[in-house]
Design a binder for these strands. Structure first.
Lengths: 221, 221
DNA sequence: CCACGTTTATAGGCTAGCCTAAATAGTTAG
DNA sequence: CTAACTATTTAGGCTAGCCTATAAACGTGG
């Protein structure tokens, strides 16, 4: 039989998370990483040491971590697997938008290149996941179209939703319920800085959205 | 994020293996189990104790283990997941027969009922895996058509290959190379008891096969 | 420029799964 | 009935990942 389990799955979670957080800041504090992964800062520090040893990340003491070239490539390949599974789960298995992220998190570590390459063929080489995030190619490269977070827009601004990032279950299910998806055109009707609420119009319907949710919505610049 | 990994995957491997071995003998010795899983007898004993605690198996000291009703159901559901993934990998992703078993071993633990139910629909409710083994239904029930191991046949016997069981990479790749699959008609031309070799004719072609391989081929009675 | 908050390190501990070596208990054949 | 073999237990150890509590190092605002 011989099925080695668990070997380095955590490491993959770490570099994937670092890769995603790097989009916001070049140097990711370990504490940020820890809270993103729902792990104690001490444990995160330990793990960071391990993956530094493996040459996947660089650590600037008291500043944060950054992926090495090897690490970045590895992280992008995990993201690739994740987003391909998401496409499969939504397009082929017709599973709900808000479920596929968590499900893909479990599948992304399960199989390697052979299956993923076959999956790419099967899915006709998709270029983005159902939430609008680009799928890296087999070299780990991808293109990220410019956008700004919805919460930085002001009254009267208009745009088209590019993607939801980062993805998290509660945000996605909120958006699914409101039928807010990539591709939708929106305009900002009102910004309430005091309560941190935005009133926006999407597809002609007015919606009220909080800051936290808005920060996950990336709009074409 | 919160993705619990590894939790009880080993236990699933154990009960799956016991379930498969139970077809041959009602009471599976721990040593048999251990060698099937490629694990030391001591470790297997430890794990057996754990799954006895969980009420999944019964252990008769010095005799062997047997699945409880709960355990049997759980084991069959793992087998179900395994075989459905095998079908997906061969039918949809066009991956080779001999690869899909090991790949499915990694996928079978990754996701639960939601994905599996959707997969069943997507695959049009298949009734067997690519190697001819039946896929249990969502209650863990299945039908096993009667058959005998090829190595028990004598000269002149004829039959149709029902399934390859148990599945293991080396056996499957040997058979793939020889194009021996379920559904093929065969007749036994010669049995060499001394060397343990069988000469059989499959689809009009003569093939020489060893005892070990033959014991994995189940032929319609 | 120094106290305060943040970041990291140290120490000690836990669980799941695996390992080997050696002791013991049970089964069976001669 | 006992020797030989097999099955199991005991003892001791390992790694990966996580934890808490505490201590030390750093960097920055007043």
């Amino acid at each position: 039989m011989s099925v080695q389990l668990t070997k380095g799955e955590s490491a993959e979670m770490y570099i994937k998370a670092i890769g995603e957080l790097t989009l916001e800041e070049a140097l990711v504090p370990i504490s940020t990483l820890a809270s993103r992964l729902g792990i104690s800062p001490v444990s995160a520090t330990e793990m960071v040491h391990r993956i530094v040893e493996q040459g996947l990340v660089e650590h600037e003491r008291y500043k944060g971590v950054r992926l090495t070239e090897t690490g970045k490539r590895r992280a992008m390949l995990v993201l690739r697997r994740h987003r391909l599974w998401e496409r499969f789960l939504t397009d082929k298995l017709k599973l709900p938008w808000e479920d596929v992220h968590d499900l893909a998190c479990r599948l992304e570590h399960a199989v390697g290149t052979e299956v993923i390459d076959a999956l790419v063929d099967f899915l006709d080489e998709p270029s983005s996941c159902p939430h609008g995030n680009p799928i890296p190619n087999s070299e780990g490269e991808f293109e990220y179209s410019d956008g700004v977070q919805l919460n930085t827009l002001r009254q009267g601004d208009e745009g088209v939703i590019l993607r939801i990032h980062p993805e998290s279950r509660d945000v996605l299910s909120f958006l699914a319920q409101k039928r807010i998806k990539p591709g939708a055109a929106l305009s900002v009707i009102d910004v309430d800085d005091f309560d941190g609420l935005l009133t926006i119009s999407i597809n002609g319907v007015d919606q009220i959205i909080g800051q936290r949710i808005a920060s996950h919505i990336v709009v074409a610049a």
